[in-house]
Simulated scan of single mutants.
Amino acid sequence: MTAGHPRPTRAELAAATDRTIPDVLGEGLAVLFVGINPGLWSAATGWHFARPGNRFWPALHLGGFTPRLLHPSEQDELPALGLGITNMAARASARADELTAGELLDGARLLTSTVARHRPRWVAVVGVTAYRIGFGRPKATFGPQPEPLAGARLWVLPNPSGLNAHFTAVTLGAAFAELRVATGLPDRRPA
């Protein structure tokens, strides 16, 4: 992590298995980002996308959603920017591939309820494989999806995990920027 944010110990990470963390939600969200599930770092700290090496926060900034690079501990600043975070599956695991198809299917149903309740304008799933399994869309690709989700426009982004070597922070930032442009949100990065 960074200065002032100690790294979880091995024992804390091991104890975080199967833990859940609260969503970051607010009224009138422009975009609700949907992770696959919390990693152990996130479960140990209570912060979404907390593991060093996860490129969510850099991609969010490079995509123009935030005026500066936020630390995961600053996640509660997102609703004021019209942004929120939830997960497809609630339980923490070391790797997303530890989830079962049933957990992703159940997660898609719960996500649909969350979207119907909180009514974001856009839902951005960060992980095409989880989206394909959870929503039964085996041929889905990145970008806008043809069907809405509980009234929200739907978009699929690449997984920002450091394990996803197909995308760099720069290419992830470009994918996030494409979504930001589609939403009509301004580029919040300083000129």
Rank of each mutant, 00 (worst) to 15 (best):
Y131N: 04
G162I: 10
N87A: 15
G162K: 09
V170E: 15
P120M: 11
Y131Q: 01
G151S: 11
D106V: 06
T20D: 12
A44T: 01
L81T: 04
N37R: 05
D18I: 02
W57L: 10
L83F: 01
R119K: 15
F142A: 10
N54S: 06
P144Q: 14
P58A: 10
P6Y: 11
A101Q: 14
H61C: 03
T20L: 10
P67H: 07
A124Q: 13
A124F: 00
L149P: 01
G151E: 13
F176S: 01
I36W: 03
V123T: 02
T112N: 11
L83M: 12
I36P: 03
I133F: 02
P190I: 15
E103C: 01
N159Y: 14
A174H: 09
P52F: 06
V31Q: 05
H118W: 12
S73L: 03
T17W: 14
Q75V: 04
V34I: 12
N159D: 15
I21Y: 02
K139S: 13
H166A: 15
G184P: 07
T17S: 08
V24C: 07
R55I: 08
A124P: 11
L78M: 09
T129F: 10
T9F: 06
T129L: 02
V123W: 08
V31H: 08
G26F: 05
A116K: 12
K139I: 00
I36H: 01
M88R: 03
R19F: 07
P72E: 10
T171K: 12
R109W: 11
G64I: 05
G4A: 10
A50S: 14
G151F: 12
A116R: 15
E74Q: 14
H166S: 15
G151M: 13
E178I: 08
A89Q: 03
W41N: 09
G184V: 12
L62E: 13
E27M: 11
A165W: 12
T168Y: 12
G162Q: 13
E147T: 04
Y131L: 06
L185C: 09
F167D: 09
A90T: 03
R153N: 08
L154D: 05
D187N: 14
G102L: 10
E27S: 10
E147M: 13
T100Q: 07
G4K: 08
R188P: 04
L29I: 00
T183A: 13
L185Y: 00
D187G: 10
L62G: 06
T171C: 13
T114S: 05
L110S: 11
R117I: 02
R132D: 00
A15T: 00
V170C: 02
G35C: 04
A16D: 04
T2Y: 08
P146R: 13
M88C: 00
F33M: 06
I21T: 07
W41V: 05
I21V: 08
E98Q: 14
